[in-house]
Simulated assay, not measured.
Amino acid sequence: MEAGQRPRWRKSDLGLRGTLATMKKRLPGLALCVAIALVATGLGTLAPVVGAPVFGIVIGAVIAAFLKPGTVAEAGAAWSGKYVLQASVVVFGTGLSIVEVLQTGWHSLPVMLGTLAIALLGAWLIGRALRLDGDLRTLIGVGTGICGASAIAAAQSVIRAKSADVAYAIGTIFTFNVIAVVTFPFIGRALHMSDHSFGLWAGTAINDTSSVVAASFSFSAAAGAYGIVVKLTRTLMIIPITIALALYKRRQAVKAVRADAAAGTSAEQPGRLAWNKVVPMFLIWFLVAVLVDSLGVIPASWHPYLSQLGSFMITVALAGIGLGTRIGVLKQAGLRPLVLGASLWVLVALSSLGLQAVTHTL
């Protein structure tokens, strides 16, 4: 190279340098999220009713209160809150088997689908009455109707809700998970429910898998085994709901462009919707994970470890969301998210019992 001549970088070299620079930028925040997750996992072991994911988002939010915007941890925390969240959903798919889903029997589907419809419709109607933000209504609705933190993770990846909304939703789901774990076994015994009917009730009316396990096994081992299968089947509803949310967001974007055009504002028409925009890639991999497990490729002995990995990844991701949350913003929501969560919790619990009575599974 002649003196004074600038070095010529190949495009591949520039791409590699850019990737390494991006990774270096994200590493401090990601490391902090992992550290928080380790602490949260220890606390979750001591207090399983609360659970590590909730500890993760709470610790992250507390630390965020002392961090200034633009801190070195910001990029890694944001990356964790999005991509580690998506990866955790895929890992959870390795614990689902299509055979197990079919073995739950067609008689459980009316209860499962009915409670999901009531949760989503209730979130829309009651949330509008409470004047809650649309994204927050959606997150609380899918969290209540499907599977708590995992469903919130999937929905968040599509609708790109604010970190504060995710925190509201997680906190709301957590509150009523704790209440359900404590009260459901007593109510079940008072109603003289069978193991089968209680497992179906817990599996369709309690949000997070850990809470379903805690409540149903508190009732009986048989109720626990059935409740887990129902809950895992219910988790599959993540796929159609997330696809529907993606299509809805697309429709909103098209309307916004048309409104700008009608107002005389220059706006670029959105192009044809690509399939990977309707069906996010992490959901494709989630379905692949389910199919791989259904074919027996994943040894049964791996399932407990994969479940632990998925739970830890969710805790890492929620720590990132917590780090991106500002406590001052959370105060603005007041009690309205809890009112919505309480209303949906009661609606889903009662509708599950009612649908069981109608379908003669109570």
Rank of each mutant, 00 (worst) to 15 (best):
T144C: 11
L362C: 05
A190G: 05
L350D: 04
V316I: 14
A61T: 14
Y168T: 06
T204E: 07
T233Y: 06
A169C: 03
T235P: 07
A169W: 10
A154Q: 08
I118N: 07
W285T: 13
T175S: 13
A342G: 15
G141Q: 02
I126N: 02
A21N: 08
V181H: 02
G324P: 08
L362N: 08
N207I: 00
C147E: 10
L347T: 03
T41F: 08
R234M: 10
T104N: 05
A65R: 11
L32H: 06
S343D: 13
G18K: 14
G171F: 06
K277P: 00
F184P: 01
L306F: 01
Q269K: 05
L116R: 03
V101W: 09
A223Y: 06
G60V: 12
G334F: 01
T235V: 15
T204M: 07
L121K: 03
L130N: 09
F55A: 03
F198Y: 11
K331P: 01
A342S: 12
A215G: 04
V279Y: 13
S108I: 13
V181C: 04
F219I: 01
I187C: 04
P7I: 10
S88Q: 05
V142P: 03
W275Q: 07
L30Y: 00
L136W: 03
G95V: 00
V297R: 05
V346W: 06
R17F: 12
L67M: 10
V62P: 04
R8D: 14
E100Q: 15
T104R: 00
Q156M: 03
I98S: 14
Y168E: 12
S351T: 15
L132C: 00
P185F: 06
Q103G: 14
T175E: 02
A169G: 08
L355T: 05
A129K: 12
K255A: 14
W275M: 09
V158D: 07
S210H: 01
K162S: 13
T172M: 06
G227V: 07
F312L: 13
I187Y: 01
L14D: 08
L306A: 05
I243R: 12
R234S: 10
F92I: 00
D293Y: 12
S220G: 03
R128C: 08
G81Q: 07
F219H: 01
S218T: 14
L130C: 12
L125G: 02
G56K: 04
T45V: 08
K82Q: 04
V254E: 15
G264N: 08
R131L: 08
Y248M: 13
G264H: 06
L14V: 10
L109C: 01
A123W: 03
Y305H: 10
E2P: 15
I179R: 09
G42R: 14
L330M: 11
I239Y: 09
G328P: 00
A274L: 05
A205R: 02
T359K: 03
A253I: 02
K255R: 11
A154H: 14
C147T: 06
S211C: 06
P28N: 07
I239C: 12
V166L: 15
L38N: 04
A259Y: 02
D195C: 02
V316Y: 06
V54C: 09
G310H: 11
